[in-house]
Design a protein around this nucleic acid. Structure first.
Lengths: 252, 252
DNA sequence: CACCTCTGCGTTGTATACATCTTTGCCCAT
DNA sequence: ATGGGCAAAGATGTATACAACGCAGAGGTG
């Protein structure tokens, strides 16, 4: 497979460094707990220390790296419990976004897009056959639905907080969708999630803030369930981006 | 008044740059909307571009500065609505922390510290006289209570999300406490807040997750009320750290 | 007069030299 | 054998030179 980072042509060296380091970390090439030195990354990436330093600072903010007491960086790892909590934080913030959206009213164009998005997912699920690309299309539309939900709130502050959580590899709405390819009950899970999407949209249309918030929170917990399934199925876990960062119970 | 930043002796130049820029932004010396150039800050702070660049990156992450399309930075400003939302986000995340704490159980030592903290606030409020330093002591203990609440959850992920929100100048639990010096009904507000503190602690002790979450959320809304009061009282507003960053309705 | 271009200046991007701090591992003393 | 200290290697912190980019203003042209 070609190195995806080298393909980024029109990017600053700092961006290249960010993408390169993030990529190697998520692939487990740079292993959890490993110390990252600027000079080592200079050799690895072929750029000088200046962009490497900027990239390290950014990735530490993002949460992938952990600053040490002596001004170095370690590749961070995540316990199951931390991933669970991250998903719960996402659900809570998405719930807040939905509540605000319901209270303040969602602009018609965004409601339209939400409806259109769900119609798209309905179509994908109706035609889904094992092995075809329906997971990819589901994942895209699912991400879009969640993005629209945030947009519906119109709140830059909620967006800011949510962006930070979702930057973690396991907290995004579609983090475990790719793992579904290896999970037998996959289609049923996706259909359940889509039912929840419809309920959420219905509550938004009815401007029922009291109903939409717990619906959205519960919806996020599907990701927790998917995490549990993936952790018990190594084929599925391999599909999850960033799986090498998960610190398993009792191991190492 | 002496420049507080120059007093920081044992700090790297990067830290000095962060503190210096943040200080000048919050004081309104660098005005909202103003473009910050690296060379300008080099002159202002007396350090070279390298630490200035690092500081700009950090402060942009923090939310005080806004990256422009052409790789520059602007001093950010905040609408009333944004500050309201930021406080709501804080309340929501603190509510999540409290719910998790109630569900998982709070360690006895932390419960002890919470009780001790509230006893301290009770004492401060009982002896409060206008003009004495009770606001400073209240503010410290109040911050400590909120920090303990977060610690009680034991969740690094909630802590991470909350840290990000609270880094904004107006979202911290004690952001508007200093303004109270100029607000007549101040003592009554603080007493109400302390009543809520007691209710929250009671709910935690009873491990009532369903009760503690809305209590904490509502508690945060006192800050929203304080913001409203401060915005209508320019003497009070002057006391608020970062007041120059508030974009008033209809102005400028 | 409007518009386009080209030039010059101001700003950020990058590499690198040098300073300083941290760590490591060896050697010596006990 | 163990502990402490010191020296050397390696790491990050900082300054700065140079490159590249972008914007504004002057001047030319339709």
């Amino acid at each position: 497979m070609a190195d995806p980072v080298a393909l980024v042509r029109d990017a600053s060296l700092t961006e290249r460094a960010v993408l390169g380091i993030r990529d190697q970390v998520l692939r487990g090439k740079l292993r959890a707990g490993e110390r990252l030195t600027e000079l080592g990354l200079v050799d690895l990436l072929g750029v000088s220390r200046t962009p490497v330093r900027a990239a390290l600072q950014k990735l530490a903010e993002e949460g992938l790296l952990e600053p040490t007491q002596s001004n170095g960086y370690l590749v961070r790892n995540f316990s199951e419990a931390e991933i669970f909590d991250a998903i719960e934080v996402r659900g809570t913030l998405e719930g807040l976004a939905a509540r605000i959206a319901a209270e303040r009213g969602v602009p018609q164009p965004i409601l339209e897009q939400l409806r259109h998005c769900l119609a798209g997912i309905d179509a994908v699920l109706a035609g889904a056959r094992p092995g075809d690309g329906h997971l990819v299309r589901y994942s895209e539309l699912n991400s879009r639905f969640h993005a629209l939900l945030l947009e519906a709130s119109g709140s830059t502050m909620v967006a800011r907080a949510l962006a930070r959580v979702v930057s973690l590899p396991f907290a995004a709405p579609d983090a475990f969708v790719s793992a579904q390819a290896k999970i037998p009950e996959s289609l049923q899970i996706l259909k359940t999630a889509q039912l929840q999407h419809h309920e959420i949209l219905g509550a938004l249309e009815a401007r029922s803030s009291a109903r939409v918030e717990p619906l959205v929170r519960e919806h996020a917990r599907i990701a927790r369930k998917n995490l549990e399934l993936a952790l018990r199925n190594s084929d599925a876990l391999e599909q999850v981006v960033g799986a090498p960062l998960i610190r398993r119970r009792g191991r190492s």
